[in-house]
Design a protein around this nucleic acid. Sequence first.
DNA 1: TGCAGATATATCGGGTCTCGATGTATTGTA
DNA 2: TACAATACATCGAGACCCGATATATCTGCA
Lengths: 121, 121
Amino acid sequence: MQKEIQTRLPLTEPMFFVLAALADGDKHGWGILKDVEDLTQGRVSLSPGTLYGIIKRLLEWEWIAESEQRPPQRWDDRRRKYYRLTDQGREAAQAEARRLQGAVDLARGKHLLRAPKGGPA
Amino acid sequence: MQKEIQTRLPLTEPMFFVLAALADGDKHGWGILKDVEDLTQGRVSLSPGTLYGIIKRLLEWEWIAESEQRPPQRWDDRRRKYYRLTDQGREAAQAEARRLQGAVDLARGKHLLRAPKGGPA
DNA sequence: TGCAGATATATCGGGTCTCGATGTATTGTA
DNA sequence: TACAATACATCGAGACCCGATATATCTGCA
């Protein structure tokens, strides 16, 4: 199920946010959902169908993998499944981020967006 | 067919590029296609099915309108249909650009992207 | 003039993805 | 023990991209 990352781009918004949520640490499905909501101040709210569909696909693509690490029993919940970003997955997220940056630059060139805080070079 | 812009976001990549292509002047369908290719150094190449599907939808949403202005007869081609961005359409493109900017900022926070040229404030 | 290839618009069907609805099991709490 | 929240999972409807295909018009060239 491995394929060139480029052939999977552009990613959909939910897909990108799931990868971004996993970029700073392993999380379980429901935790990803909450993280994306927090990250976007509630603007992006994944429905369960979207979330678990994405997880399934990301596992097939080997962009994420099930994590064997679990929190101490006291705080664990056996229903949970934890996931971690693979190297492939991180590369994909970075590639998508660069693509998004390109689109933003283009928007600036077309005066659809104000100049960045730093000001013109 | 009018709806809140927010309910149409996020836009797909082809849709966004079509709006961006029209942001600096009226163009006809085929011209939009070529412009998007140039704009993206050939990375994004719309298929006809995508292009005309998008134009149809954008007309329904009133984000673009058929332009009555045509080039002088000498350079005209009666097959062509010219389009212009409506105020609604420009607002939508700007809103999408801001959304993209937000995703880029998020990616930076997760260290998926290097800091901008201007450097940290 | 006649022909070939490029330009230009349009539609169709297959495949992918989001999303809400629905279902089920487990955990925490009153 | 009830009840709500948490957590995972699947299904079908609808939206959209894309390649294939069709048709018409324009341009360059022999």
